[in-house]
Design a protein around this nucleic acid. Structure first.
Ligand SMILES: [Zn+2]
Ligand SMILES: [Zn+2]
Ligand SMILES: [Zn+2]
Ligand SMILES: [Zn+2]
Lengths: 145, 145
DNA sequence: CGTCCAGATGATACAGAGTCTCATGTAGGC
DNA sequence: GCCTACATGAGACTCTGTATCATCTGGACG
């Protein structure tokens, strides 16, 4: 789906060791379509008999998240899902049906945060925006109105 | 902090029984300052020797959430926290220091979602926006620049 | 190349969140 | 006041994520 190289490069650039399990994780992640959970990766690693321990999967996922090449989504269900993405500030549109996501750059939230800051007196440092809906493919198939 | 009556009324209006444990939960929730977790309520219920079971706490919390009088926040830490609030669409500014939140009505996200929909082809059905920062009190005390 | 060791791993135990079951209790309509 | 559908509490259970620790290995260095 995406490119495992980007994940591996990020590790390398940050000075982390390029170990076998980490390379395998990069492969697993880049093969995912749409968002995925830690449990998904555990299952996939198991299926492919990669011999990667559960703890390592969580550790690598945290690492990729710290490096900004993977981002955590908080699904309405309460589950934590992840998507590979660029290490710059942006947001996600998430398909509620197939889980595919697309990055969207900050579309005008600055004005919003400034306005909120003015009205509430809060000093706003960060924000999270998630947009849920149906991707073109899913919208087309379930809703051929 | 907030008003327990609003929580109880919401149950009543939706046709749920007004049981002792649910009234107690409404009390616990309205006494919270800032956001709180299910675990917080378990501790508080225990401390006050209310004799409410853990399962009941989770069940009541889910119920209040369904009724829209309590909303779940996904903290950057990954924890699930809750805040009592009005059952209409709105967002929260969250103080990273004391956990206090303030409701903010939709500040201009509609334009954002429309623009994103146009650019990505997604049909956007819902969204979540959370703003993190420091409330006036906390900003004043830690940052008297 | 081979040596070496800080950093990484996997097994396992553990802690916490949330769910399920089921016998018992009770709200509230009659 | 009775009755029953709905709610509760206890406790077992599942799942996510973390901690510990003995063992292993990437890659720096010679
Ligand atoms: Zn889709
Ligand atoms: Zn943004
Ligand atoms: Zn504060
Ligand atoms: Zn909104």
């Amino acid at each position: 789906m995406t490119d495992a190289t980007a994940l591996i490069d990020a590790l390398d650039r940050a000075g982390y060791r390029l170990t076998e399990p980490r390379r395998a994780m990069a492969g697993l992640i880049s093969d995912q379509t749409g968002h995925f959970t830690a449990a998904d990766l555990v299952v996939d690693a198991r299926t492919r008999r990669l011999g990667i321990g559960r703890a390592t999967i969580f550790r690598a996922l945290d690492l990729f998240e710290d490096l900004g090449v993977v981002e955590r989504l908080d699904l309405p269900s309460g589950d934590h899902a992840y998507v590979p993405c660029e290490p710059i500030h942006h947001h996600h549109v998430i398909c509620s049906s197939c889980g595919r996501t697309e990055d969207v750059d900050d579309p005008g939230i600055d004005a919003v945060t400034r306005s909120v800051a003015r009205r509430t007196g809060f000093r706003i440092d960060s924000h999270r925006l998630e947009l849920f809906g149906l991707c073109p493919a899913c919208a087309g198939s379930v809703d051929p109105r």
